[in-house]
Amino acid sequence: MDIFIQQIINGLVLGSIYALVALGYTMVYGIMGLINFAHGEVVMIGAMVALTVINLLLGSGLPGVVMALIGLAAAVPVCMATGFAIERIAYRPLRNAPKLAPLITAIGVSIVLQNVAMLVWGRNYHAFPPILPSVDFEVFEATITGVQVAIIAIAALMMIGLTLLVQRTRLGRAMRATAENPSIAQLMGVDTNRIISLTFVIGSSLAAVAGFMVSANYSIAHYYMGFILGLKAFTAAVLGGIGNLAGAMLGGILLGLIESLGAGYIGDLTGGFLGSHYQDVFAFFVLILVLVFRPSGLVGEKVAERA
């Protein structure tokens, strides 16, 4: 039983990380209908900047949590600036271009950022220094670390905060209007360019937090870390219904649970016929099933294109 609960916890932690990153994908998609493939790289930059700052502070004698918070505080504006620059350079000039064009620039930006990070931080892996207090909690004989509790809590808080922002504030209303029809929104006095910039900036600040949490949890940062993470998070966003904030959260958690339970039990359930190398196969199999029966994702809104 403790093993089963441990697997659920593993899945929740992994899922929350996917969800944190997926929120960034889904926000941009919701507003612009664009898949920002560079989002994974923004996550990576967040992790790298936080780590660099923390390493600089290591000798200062500050308490570990304070150092971590300073590192995070440094990563957020850097990521915001990166997100803003990406939108200005790679997406805004293509606002009225065919849909495929910004998709290609998105991939281009992603590769450029990866290579810039490789030049700045090198090809080596960076270890996250053990500055955060290692508190372990026992839940029914299963272990969960303090960082993991924080990841689940922060992911949940961010989703709630974002939902409130989009549903309850003036900015949120402008965002929804832009999502619905940018040109009409503009006629109604919404500065759509500013709203889109802000969307990128907010999404990138989430990415900074996600990057920080990922490298704190796995104690690892590398210029390549954003790629796979971004791919998985994108899958999570699609699974939940891209463009929908609650969907990103649900998709992320679901993907994490499927991977974790899949890796843990496929082997025993099939008598060794299928092993843990099928964990990704099962995750994507679920994705295909969802897309076949609910093309807009689990909680995605029906897009009124099918008349």
Binding site: L14, I228, S276
Partner: peptide, 22 residues
């Protein structure tokens, strides 16, 4: 006792390690 698998790009091994623990 068991043979588990991952990839050369993974960072999360909690699931397979939990199984191994059992």
């Amino acid at each position: 006792v068991t043979r588990e698998f991952t990839t050369d790009k993974a960072t999360d091994f909690a699931a397979i390690l939990t199984k191994i623990k059992s």
